[in-house]
Structure formats: C-alpha cells, structure tokens
Amino acid sequence: MSEEEKHILEPQRWVELYGDYLFNYAIVRVNDQEKAEDLVQETFLAGLKAKDNFQGKSTERTWLISILKRKVIDTYRKQYASKESSMGEFEQEISDGDFYRSEGPFKGHWMEGKGPHSHSLMPEGELEQVELMKIIQLCISHLPPNLASVFVMKMIDEAESEEVCKELGITPSNLWVMLHRARLKMRQCIESKWLK
C-alpha cells in the first residue's frame, strides 16, 4: 500500500464487515455472550463518536480493535474495583489451600487428585487439536473472573507485566501468584476434560 493511500471509515458497513471479528475478540476475553455483544456495540458507537480522530494510518479494523481492547481492559478494571469491597474473597482465591495439603508430614505436597495424572495434556491427532482449542476456551470461562483477566492479558494478549499491574491495580507478586493459580486451574480443567 502506498503511503498516500489513506484508510477511510464506512460506519454503515461496520456490523457487516467487522461484527463477527470484534465479537470473536470480545468473547474470547470476557467469556460472556451478552457482555461481548454489549462491548461490540459500545465499540462501534465509540468509534462513531471518535470518527474525526481517525487518521487513516491503520486499517478500520485495527482501529476498531484498539477501541475494543481498551473497553475489555475497562471491564477487567471494574471487576477489580468491585473486588475491593470484598477483599476477603480475593485473598481466598489466591490462597493455595485447595490444591496442596495444609497439614501433616506432607504439608505443601499435592493433595490427592489435585496434581497431574496423565503423562501429557496434549492430544496427538489433528481433529483433537480442534477439540483442545474448545476445551481451552471452556476452561478459561470456568476461571474466576479476576484470574481469567490476568491469564488472558498475560497469555493471550501477551501484555507486559507492568502494564497488567498498572491496569488492574495489583502488585507484581499478586500478578505472579494469580497467574500461577490460573495455570493450576487451567491444567486441572484441561486434564479432567480429556480424562472424561
């Protein structure tokens, strides 16, 4: 594409052109259909409002995604803000009590059934790869919301740790503990789906 060629916006065609694409982006990150639909609508409306700021440097789609990305992060922030009122619950979610033995000579060791069983988490065949992708999505949706937001920002968006901490208002040590918790749960969830 030549440098002079500028992208233009065609809001009349947004739903048709980008509806599915934005919806995909949103649902992977918020795991709630209704919420994802709302985010798509809010993105288009915000895009319309900010239309004059569009400089045509990026494509229409990239520009809309950048608006949606911001909105997804705002959703996460709201989840955290509402958590502040119930810090006890938050603490409980990051404690390890339900995975390791909390007393006895084997304190700190895996609790029966909470550690890994199978040799491999991953299926061999190609068809099963598709199945695995579905399982990953399902398992992300089973994570508690605050663990899910950390997991998605870090693992799917590959955001910098500083950015995640800043956006969510958590400390780096919170972040690493939560990411660890999310992985514990994801591993367990995926394994249990295969064993079924």
Partner: peptide, 13 residues
C-alpha cells in the same frame, strides 16, 4: 504439562 499448556494457549490465541 505447564509447558504444554502455555504452548496450547499460544496456539489458541
């Protein structure tokens, strides 16, 4: 398994 999980999630995204 955690290595596998990280790779699979990368593939997923």
């Amino acid at each position: 398994q955690i290595d596998q999980l990280n790779n699979a999630v990368k593939h997923y995204s």
